[in-house]
């Protein structure tokens, strides 16, 4: 037995303890990691040692972290406005940098011929969901026009897609039924356009002609929160 080839312990319980302490190295670490994932008996030993060793922290006094830490954490975990409706639907999708770059690229032809496109603020989102394959890019300019481009997903047979704008603590507002085409352009109501950074866009499927009562009745097929580009 040499120092570079540590012999793993023969005793599973000791290996589990070493793993929890952070002492397992090399092959023993790989083995412990793998068995924790796949071997219920071993995972149980690991959990048992975690439960025992945590008593070493009993004597550690609580220390209030600075307020700025809470603010920084919440800003990191919730980078944009989070809406109760979206929380319930649990379909939040962050906007990746790549998606924003794509939005910027695709927005240019959509926004022509507006000559001031380079200087106005542009807001965008990519609407998606985990449950459906619909992906729609939405780009809003400062004049309150939203340009939409369907990147993937089909319209279910016999149904239409309806676009909704949601402001915090408010009921969704219908922006109308989307045409069958891949691209569309819709004028936003003033109160939506004026609060554009708080808006979440969502698309539901609805019976022909749109939601009869003015609130979504079908599945929410894609959702995305607007952010500044």
């Amino acid at each position: 037995m040499s120092d570079t080839q540590p012999q793993p312990p023969e005793d599973d319980d000791v290996l589990a303890a070493e793993y929890v302490l952070g002492l397992a190295e090399g092959d023993a670490l790989e083995t412990a990691r793998d068995r924790t994932r796949h071997d219920a008996g071993f995972a149980s030993r690991v959990a048992g040692w975690q439960e025992r060793f945590v008593a070493m922290t009993d004597g550690i006094d609580p220390v209030n972290p600075p307020r700025k830490l809470r603010r920084a954490l919440m800003a990191q975990v919730f980078p944009k406005q989070r809406l109760p409706l979206m929380q319930r639907l649990w379909v939040w999708q962050g906007i990746s940098f790549a998606a924003l770059a794509l939005a910027a690229y695709l927005a240019v032809p959509l926004l022509r011929p507006a000559p001031t496109v380079a200087t106005v603020d542009v807001y965008a989102t990519q609407m998606t969901s985990d449950a459906f394959d619909l992906t729609v890019l939405a780009v809003v300019d400062a004049r309150g026009d939203v340009a939409l481009r369907r990147l993937s997903g089909d319209i279910p047979a016999g149904r239409v897609l309806e676009l909704w704008a949601i402001l915090p603590e408010q009921e969704p507002v219908s922006l109308g039924v989307l045409p069958q085409t891949e691209t569309a352009r819709i004028r936003l109501p003033d109160n939506i356009a004026q609060n554009i950074t708080s808006v979440t866009l969502a698309i539901s499927d609805e019976p022909e002609g749109g939601a009869p009562q003015g609130t979504p009745t079908g599945d929410i097929r894609a959702v995305g929160a607007i952010s500044e580009l």
Partner: peptide
């Protein structure tokens, strides 16, 4: 890396 075994317990625990 120290594993965070608490996060990795996919197998049923105790």
């Amino acid at each position: 890396d120290v594993d965070t075994p608490g996060l990795e317990l996919i197998a049923p625990g105790p």
